[in-house]
Design a protein around this nucleic acid. Structure first.
Lengths: 123, 123
DNA sequence: CAGCATCCTTTATGATACTG
DNA sequence: CAGTATCATAAAGGATGCTG
């Protein structure tokens, strides 16, 4: 459903960013990683609504897109640390802008529960 | 597939923004409307890759979410103008941030065509 | 012109259970 | 612990044709 990055690039630069970051949980994951590297389980506890498979897929795609680095430690039990790449670090302004906009939007919803469609899209 | 806004709000503010703006074409439409109101056909010509139905749906959802205003003129032939609401106008920083990030990303791709997955997601 | 109706395909996301 | 495998489902996005 999401545009391939190269095709998005032919349309509009914003669409490139959307195709890489638009997936559910992806920007939330990036946001949490902004504070520093986290293990798979730690990320999972920070985003309980996402199951392991979904989480794995999102992280793999972010990795393929060069946003996230995956560090597998050869230990038992396994330890896998995720961190932002240099490119991923450049997402900070986007994360901040969307975080504050989303917070404002949520505040409006709370103030006027009748506004917006709110439940027209499932999970 | 996309989270309902209210559920997203329980997870993370960034997820609220993603649920509203994450759909294909949506941020591109907002970007074009930043320059001023546009008619349906004008928007379509600016985003030729999206067909009428997809365009209509995206605009309706943006309208329901309070980002876009739809102005139907009682004329023949019909004239429908889309514009940003006040709330939609507050998206400018996000649009700018994602536009420049996407442009940088596309430039990297062009410089090193082997990087990224680029075609792992269809349209 | 700006849509809507219909039908279709893809795939994102999830539930659940198993494994090195 | 950090996954993978399998199966299921809804919904996003699209093609095409009709209409006030």
């Amino acid at each position: 459903m999401r545009l391939p990055v190269r095709r998005a690039a032919e349309v509009c630069p914003v669409e490139v960013a959307v195709s890489i970051l638009g997936g559910t949980w992806k920007l939330t994951l990036v946001k949490h990683l902004t504070a520093g590297p986290l293990r798979f389980g730690q990320l999972g506890r920070r985003v309980p609504a996402a199951n392991r498979k979904t989480l794995t897929r999102a992280l793999r795609e972010l990795e393929e897109d060069g946003v996230v680095h995956r560090d597998v430690h050869a230990e038992v039990p396994p330890r896998v640390e995720y961190s932002l790449t240099a490119l991923g670090g450049t997402l900070a302004p986007i994360v901040e802008a969307m975080d504050s906009w989303g917070a404002d939007y949520a505040a409006r919803l709370a103030a006027d529960p009748l506004q917006g469609r709110g439940s027209s899209r499932s999970a």
